[in-house]
């Protein structure tokens, strides 16, 4: 099926990805991540001693501060904060530094669609840069579904508004190390097929959603390879930064 996208991409084509780590001097870890014109800067501070009220002191706590490009923080930003926090909580090993708080500050530099997935990718890279112990990486992708039922990946803001429904998905990246058989598999499906986070907008049929899942999974495999590649050179110097 031929699909016309304003920027001439094919349905499955992502915008150019760029990731640079350690961009801020004073932060314990930082990363900037861009997908086309959407760009996010994420900084990690911590682990700092103590946790906030209502947090479990037996575990490390994660705090996310979302800074919009302009204006005050509203309901939308609060929701992004909460989703980001719970997504990052699920990839961090929280039992290693109990009773500490790690702050992640997310600054939106430009929003041109797929903002939340971009923020998740940026924070994930920043966490690696800060040397926070993680179970695995998380890779986020945004899919859009049109009226006629085709799926496009990594939509721009204009495309997001035109489409019938959109889905944000976060998957774990595929492990390269050998894992003991059966330990991470549920019902015969590999780890990277499980959804960490899912957020939808607009009505669609269940089959369309499952279709989006498949397309998202296929694309995140490529993205996780990119993320791994862009994090590789930083890895040896990382350990010195965490004290």
């Amino acid at each position: 099926m031929e699909i016309d996208r304003d920027d001439g991409r094919t349905a499955n084509q992502l915008r150019p990805l760029a990731c640079s780590c350690n961009v801020l001097n004073r932060a314990h870890g930082s990363a900037s991540w861009s997908q086309g014109d959407t760009k996010i800067l994420a900084a990690v501070y911590g682990p700092k001693a103590g946790t906030k009220k209502n947090e479990n002191p037996e575990k490390a706590s994660i705090e996310v501060i979302w800074k919009p490009k302009t204006g005050q923080i509203g309901k939308l930003e609060r929701e992004c904060e909460m989703i980001l926090k719970r997504t990052l909580q699920s990839i961090c090993i929280l039992t290693i530094n109990p009773n500490t708080t790690t702050s992640i500050v997310v600054q939106v530099i430009h929003d041109d669609g797929a903002l939340l997935p971009c923020a998740i990718n940026a924070s994930c890279a920043a966490l690696v840069d800060a040397g926070i112990p993680l179970k695995h990486l998380a890779v986020a992708i945004s899919c859009c579904l049109s009226e006629s039922g085709y799926v496009i990946l990594d939509p721009t803001k204009l495309e997001e508004q035109k489409m019938k429904a959109s889905v944000h998905l976060v998957f774990p990246n595929s492990p390269v190390s050998v894992i003991p058989e059966g330990s991470t598999q549920v019902g015969g499906e590999p780890l990277e097929n499980g959804i960490i986070t899912s957020l939808t907008q607009g009505a669609m049929s269940v089959d369309d959603y499952i279709h989006c899942l498949e397309r998202g999974r296929a694309a995140t495999a490529k993205m996780s390879a990119f993320l791994r590649r862009s994090l590789q050179p930083q890895l040896p110097t990382d350990s010195s930064k965490v004290g």
Partner: peptide
Amino acid sequence: LDSSGQLVSFYKPGGSVLAYTSAVQDCV
């Protein structure tokens, strides 16, 4: 889900357990 069976939202904000396709279908 709405009354015609359309999926209006599938909302999973993180969490330590991953949702596989089978779990997605069971929840639906």
